[in-house]
């Protein structure tokens, strides 16, 4: 199965994307709490520091950045947008 950014709703491409630096994440869950489209969760596995790192579900990110500011780790998350959307933001 190839990576996709097509949402399941209407086949439109996702506006945004998010990556988690799993080795910096302390599993506090504040990004999960902040995420409006609810596309983040805490992974069932542990990272090497013993935390359940945050995990992107793979689609549905709006690129709003709320998770980024809720995250206490400087490099815990990176948030992306499609160029046209980024310009509009």
């Amino acid at each position: 199965m190839s990576p996709t950014t097509e949402t399941s709703t209407g086949g439109k491409p996702d506006k945004g994307y998010v990556t988690v630096n799993t080795e910096q994440c302390k599993g506090c869950g504040l990004c999960v709490e902040a995420c409006v489209p609810r596309v983040l969760r805490l992974a069932p596995h542990l990272n090497r520091f013993g935390y359940h790192p945050a995990q992107y579900l793979g689609h549905g990110c709006s690129g709003c950045g709320l998770c980024f500011h809720a995250c206490p780790e400087p490099g815990g998350l990176v948030v992306y947008k499609r160029p046209s959307m980024a310009a509009a933001a």
Partner: peptide, 8 residues
């Protein structure tokens, strides 16, 4: 994949 970084 065509995204730009907005928050890092």
């Amino acid at each position: 994949a065509g995204f730009e970084i907005v928050h890092e």
